[in-house]
């Protein structure tokens, strides 16, 4: 028949329907559904009246257990990839009416809690913060969707399904992780510091790049972007690094400082020399120490660059009245 393909996929395929299937397939649900079907097998219609008879209690109990287990598996797979329990994050409204599930966080309802598996949603007009005393504070921008995946000791994991967040983390390095559609960002003790006026890009499957100032030259930004996301060989990266170093101005010391720990050992002396020429290191910093990525020396040099004390970056909340770090 003419509509066989539409009816059951048999017959001659209809190209237009195939095109619609391909386009709309992205919305298809791909999670396992609870096994409710067992219910029908065990409770046929004609035995309806015997539903509450003791005779059927064992079977009904088994069905209930199966259904509950299936539903639990479904919900766990959906919302708790790793089941570490832990305290809930405190949710506070900054603007509008953010929601946790069905619960609106507003003036009247007061602060809320974000537990494992729950999702904080902000619409176009609302902002919120989530705070966990032992970990840090995360500010959630409008039009965002943030789920708490794991909250166990030593590992806090959020999933940013859409939107933007600004995190101030005081937990030990490596504890705080954010999954995003394009990358997994792990707080490694503030490996990337992005002050006001700076940008840090990310790419799917690659992750965050090197921060740079918004007013950096086009050639500098182009070479840095290729260095971070397109270069495949060591020779290619070395060549791009040459362009970056040659084009670096005094303001680009932010990028050069980050590059110290991002380039290969053979390339590091060149970065050191250029950074030292643009911003001479303090007395406590030695070339040998920087080439060996001595953390206290890297910190001391950062402190001399004028972007604020590194202790504040690592430990305390930055001044939120300033423009927050921007992640593209």
């Amino acid at each position: 028949m003419k509509d066989d393909y539409l009816w059951d996929g048999s017959g001659e395929p209809d190209p237009e329907i195939q095109k619609l299937e391909a386009a709309l397939g992205r919305y298809r649900h791909n999670q396992p559904a609870p096994a409710f079907d067992r219910l029908r097998e065990i409770r046929p219609v004609e035995q309806r009246r015997a539903f509450f008879s003791l005779r059927w209690l064992p079977q009904l109990g088994a069905v209930a257990v199966i259904v509950l287990l299936a539903a639990a598996v479904f919900l766990v797979l959906r919302s708790r990839p790793s089941g570490n329990a832990g305290p809930s994050w405190d949710v506070a409204r900054l603007e509008g009416t953010p929601r946790v599930g069905w619960h609106a966080i507003g003036d009247k309802s007061g602060p809320g809690k974000l537990g494992i598996g729950q999702t904080l949603v902000t619409d176009n007009f609302s902002r919120a913060t989530i705070t966990l005393d032992e970990t840090g504070r995360v500010e959630v921008d409008p039009s965002s969707r943030l789920r708490l995946v794991t909250n166990g000791p030593g590992r806090k994991r959020l999933s940013l399904e859409r939107g933007t967040i600004h995190a101030t983390i005081w937990a030990p390095p490596g504890e705080f992780v954010v999954d995003t559609p394009s990358a997994v960002a792990v707080d490694l003790g503030c490996v990337s510091f992005i002050p006001a006026g700076a940008i840090c890009q990310t790419r799917p499957g690659i992750g965050p790049g090197t921060p740079y100032l918004e007013d950096a030259s086009a050639s500098f930004r182009d070479a840095l972007s290729k260095f971070d996301f397109s270069s495949t060989t060591a020779a290619e990266r070395t060549a791009l690094l040459g362009v970056i170093l040659a084009d670096a101005r005094k303001g680009d010391v932010l990028t050069l400082w980050h590059l110290l720990s991002r380039v290969s050992d053979p390339d590091r002396p060149g970065v050191y020399d250029r950074l030292a020429a643009l911003a001479p290191p303090p007395a406590v910093v030695t070339r040998q120490g920087i080439l060996g990525l001595d953390r206290s020396m890297l910190d001391a040099w950062w402190n001399s660059l004028g972007f604020g004390d590194i202790y504040l970056w690592r430990t305390y909340e930055h001044n939120w009245s300033q423009r927050p770090p921007k992640v593209n």
Binding site: H29, Q31, A33, P34, F36, D37, L39, R40, I42, R43, P44, V45, R48, F51, A64, V67, L68, A71, F74, L75, R78, S79, G101, W102, T119, R145, R162
Partner: peptide, 27 residues
């Protein structure tokens, strides 16, 4: 964007109301 959360709500609601289902063929 709201569908996934509502799917969970539906199954939770179904579990809570399962006792009200009289005819399993109409599940």
């Amino acid at each position: 964007p709201e569908v996934d959360d509502l799917v969970q709500e539906v199954f939770l609601s179904a579990l809570r109301q399962l006792h009200a289902l009289r005819d399993s063929s109409r599940f």
